[in-house]
Each structure stands twice: as structure tokens, then as C-alpha cells.
Design a protein around this nucleic acid. Structure first.
Lengths: 277, 277
DNA sequence: CATAAAATGTAACGTAAAGTACAGTTTGCC
DNA sequence: GGCAAACTGTACTTTACGTTACATTTTATG
């Protein structure tokens, strides 16, 4: 519980002797600048002696004056950096060069998650958390790195995770091991790749449960998918943005990790041990 | 009219020697808190010596470190006191607990781009657009997919792009071809990888211009980097989020593409033809 | 490659600032 | 009005911070 310092003062000011109260009022009146100066300056401004200032900060619960100052600084920095008054800073004309691509990407992310129900997210998480089943990840030309990223994390929290990399023929050889109860997570955005479609079709034929992460126009793989998550990708750039998909991936990683909490904690510990040796 | 300190830094950073630039980058990445701490803490965080910090603030035009701190404090206090922020702070638009991870990631993205000056972005874009030079991309355990993603795009718009994949020994063999005027883009976030540091050091020794994309705590590679872009990564999840770094990558891709517009357009047409055959 | 110039860190210094002991002053209470 | 308790300031001590001189290393230049 981080009560702000001004709250702290308001709370204790009534229990203070006169001089310390003067210190408190001076601080409130010049909040927070005077508190960042030296004890001498503070005491001078308040018209009390230095020890009074020290007793004052001590009464607030700080062990030393520097500690009190650090608290003030952090509070200040937190206020300035917080996003909702960040907006004020951004709109300054001098700054000007706000980043259109970034703004668009954020808008995409918001919209993407707005269309994503907790239900849907839960279903997909369940599918990806089925420890007994195998989980295969696959992506397209530009989305494969996202599949790689996801696989890198999921391999840590659970077993049976395979990233289908390299040549198409190589994926196909993996089909032999894929069956009912197994899960295939595919990323596919425009221009949709035939190779992915063909593979998804075959996987579905073998009873594999397919999760598709695609763009808002939906890859044809949607036809074979049990779950479909659609993200926005349009930005003012020659290229589409996969940032929303990336965040979808991170969200799934986090959810699966949380869901497998106990078992993954053990697993992570074992992995750390292996690494140390 | 008083130019803000962050503007002041952006303006002078190019005229600074390496160590002072590191100080500047550390301050920008942790703006403004680190500047309010002691010289020793600042220097420790930046990985330089105390005198370097003092020379840095001196170069910014301040007579002494306390004077610099006072300026920071006043700037901060002014921001907090402005009526705009007062209003903004009161009504938190924090809508219900939809997707905390997404909200945090968006905040991270905003903060990351807030700390990124147009100047800096332009410098990096220039480096990545130098068609005559070779461009190498490299990432860590979880960031390598971002390097891959970037390489996949950049390979389309320009030549001489290499993604350093696979084993460390394999990267090293590439060093032989790397020299002055070549550029190395490294992604490195906590836990920072020794292998990347070693490689960056060797590359720098060969005169390679290093661009580092890291987290707000700055990878030790910052020591060898000509350009440093620091992104925020903290989210309410067992894992850090690389979404901000991903968007940095997309922004760089877009900028480079725009910069190489004519030449890349030709190149893309040629590529399309090749694919059709 | 030799030389000068610039940059950087080490270590020591002086000082300003926080912190403390104690005596003086005020306040409250019988 | 006398006494005790709490409060406050003066004067001093101690800490630690900013600063500087200088030696070492690195970089640029002919």
C-alpha cells in the first residue's frame, strides 16, 4: 500500500507540534519542490530550525532525510511518467513528431482485444495448456517469428511443444505424429500462404485441433480451425503491422503460464538446475 | 523560453564522446529519476565514472551537479503543477480490468516512444539504410525472433542484410567479413546474454557501428553501441513483454523502407518477377 | 608507426549537508 | 506559581557527496 506523501502529511499533521506543523504546511504550499532541496533551505523557508525539519520527516516515518527525498522523487517521477498525463506532454506542438505508426498500432491492439472475449481467450488457453497433448506452432513468411517467439516461451512451461520450422516438406513429416487431442497453432495473415492452408487441411483431417491467429479478413484456414483469433494489422506504412498479433501471442503465453502455474514452476526450477550444471 | 533538459540532451548528444553519451542514454532511459540521485548512483547505473557524469552535465551547460538537479526538479514540478495534469490525474480513464497485460503493454509502448526522439530515430534509420554497407541482425534468447522478423522485411528492401542465426560459433565466423561502415543491430534484454556481449565487443573492435535495442535498464552492450534505443518491458505477467521492442522494429522497418523508396521499389518489382517464374 | 590530442578512470580532497547532544524555552497541570 | 513534560533552537560532530588533480588509456593524425 503506497500512500502518497501528501496523504501521509494530512493524516499526521494534527498530531504535530507547532513548528513541525509549520514545516508540513510549508511543504504542502510548495509541494513538492521544497522537499527536494536541502534541510537548510527547507528550514529557512519554513522559518524553523533544521532539526525540526528532521523531526518532521522522522515523524512521517522516514529513517533519514535522503530517504524522504527519494520517496518524493519517485512519487513525482511516477506522476510525470504515468500514461494519462503523458497525453498532455505528447500534444505539445514542439514535440510534433508523434509517431503515426505507433498510434495506429495501439489503436489496432485496442480493437483487437475489444473483439476478443474472455471466453474465447479461455478456450484457447485451455487448448494450449493440455499437457498430455502435443502442441505444434507454425507461421507464415512474416509471422513465423511470432510462432518462434511463442514456442520459445511455451517450451519452458510445458512439454511437447514443437515449432514447425524450415521447409514445408519437413512439416509434413511431422504430420505422422499428429493426432486427435493434439493442437496446432497457426499464424497466417495476408498474403495468405497456400502452404499453410494445405498443411492445416491435412492436420485437421487427422483430428488435430487448430487454433488460428490471423488478420481481420480471416485466412482461409479459418475453415479448418476450431478457434480463430483475428487481429488488426493496418497501419500507415508500406507494410502491415503484426504488433497486435504479437501481443496476442504474449497474452496467450502469460495465460498458459498462469494456468500451468504449479507444474511449470517445477519445470522451470528443473531447467535452471540443468543450465547451472 | 527554457528548452527542456531532454531536448537539450537530444541536441547535444551527437557532439558527445562515448562515455558521456552513455550517461545521456541512461538518463533518457530512466528520465528523470536517475538524474535526481547522487552522482555515484548515476555513474553506477550508467557504468561510467563519476567525473564523466560531471563532465556530461557540464557539457549540458550547468555549472555544477546541484544546479543540474535543481533544473530537473523545477522542470518536474512545473509539469506536475500544470493545470492540465491536475485535471488529467483526477479522472483516470482506467476502464475496468479488461486485459491488464494489454493495458500495460500499451503504456510501455507509449513510454518507449516518448523517450525516442525523432533525431535518434533518424540516425538509426540512416545507419540501417546505408546500402553500401552490410547490415547484420542479432538477437537473444527471446528477442531473436524480432531480429528475424526485421531481417525478413529488410532483406526485401535492401541488399546485404544478414540475420546471425544459430550457434555462437557460427556468428563469429561472420566477423571476418565485418568491418568499418558495416552495421550490427543487436536486441538484448534481461537477462542479458554474455554471448551477445562478447560478440558486440569483437564487432566494435573491428569498427562496426552498433545499434542496440534493449530494455530500460540498458544491456551492457550499450558500452559498445553507437545508438541505443531503450524500450519498456515490464508487465503484470511472469514474463516480460517485448511488444514495445517489436513495434520499434516495425517502425524502423517502415522508416528504412520509406527512406529507400525508389531503390526498394525497383528491388521489390524484381523480386516479384523472380517469384512468378 | 610515432606522436599528439582527447577521453576516461582512480584516488584524494574539501566542504556542505545531515544528523546529534544538550541547553534553553515554552506549555500544560496540580 | 511551581514543577514536569514536551518542544525547539544552538552549536557541534560526522558522514558522504561533489569536485579536482593527475595518471592511464584510447583515438585521431601526419
Amino acid at each position: 500500500m503506497s500512500t502518497s506523501i501528501s496523504e501521509l502529511i494530512a493524516e499526521k499533521i494534527d498530531a504535530m507540534p507547532a513548528s513541525e506543523r509549520r514545516a508540513a504546511q510549508t511543504l504542502i504550499a510548495n509541494y513538492p519542490l521544497i522537499g527536494l532541496r536541502t534541510v537548510a533551505e527547507f528550514s529557512g523557508q519554513a522559518g524553523v530550525s533544521s532539526p525540526t525539519i528532521l523531526r518532521f520527516v522522522s515523524r512521517l516515518g522516514f529513517q533519514s532525510y535522503p530517504e524522504f527525498q527519494s520517496a518524493l522523487q519517485e512519487e513525482l517521477a511516477a506522476q510525470v511518467q504515468s500514461p494519462w498525463n503523458r497525453a498532455a506532454t505528447i500534444q505539445r506542438p514542439k514535440d510534433g513528431a508523434t509517431f503515426p505508426l505507433m498510434e495506429a498500432a495501439i489503436e489496432n491492439i485496442r480493437e483487437t482485444f475489444q473483439h476478443l472475449s474472455a471466453q474465447q481467450l479461455g478456450d484457447v488457453t485451455d487448448a494450449l495448456s493440455r499437457n498430455r497433448a502435443r502442441l505444434y506452432l507454425l507461421g507464415g513468411r512474416f509471422t513465423d517469428p511470432i510462432a518462434t517467439y511463442m514456442a520459445a516461451h511455451l517450451k519452458i512451461v510445458r512439454s511437447g511443444v514443437t515449432h514447425l520450422a524450415g521447409q514445408e516438406s519437413h512439416w509434413r513429416d511431422q504430420l505422422i505424429d499428429m493426432g486427435k487431442k493434439d493442437v496446432l497453432l497457426v499464424f497466417d495473415i495476408r498474403r495468405y500462404q497456400d502452404s499453410l492452408l494445405r498443411f492445416a487441411e491435412k492436420a485437421q483431417a487427422r483430428g488435430v485441433e487448430i487454433v488460428l491467429v490471423t488478420d481481420q479478413w480471416l485466412s482461409p484456414i479459418a475453415r479448418f480451425a476450431r478457434h480463430v483469433i483475428a487481429g488488426r494489422t493496418a497501419v500507415p506504412s508500406p507494410w502491415d503491422s503484426s504488433a497486435a498479433l504479437f501481443l496476442i501471442a504474449e497474452t496467450l503465453i502469460a495465460e498458459v503460464t498462469r494456468k500451468l502455474e504449479q507444474s511449470s514452476a517445477d519445470r522451470i526450477r528443473d531447467l535452471e538446475q540443468l543450465r547451472d550444471n
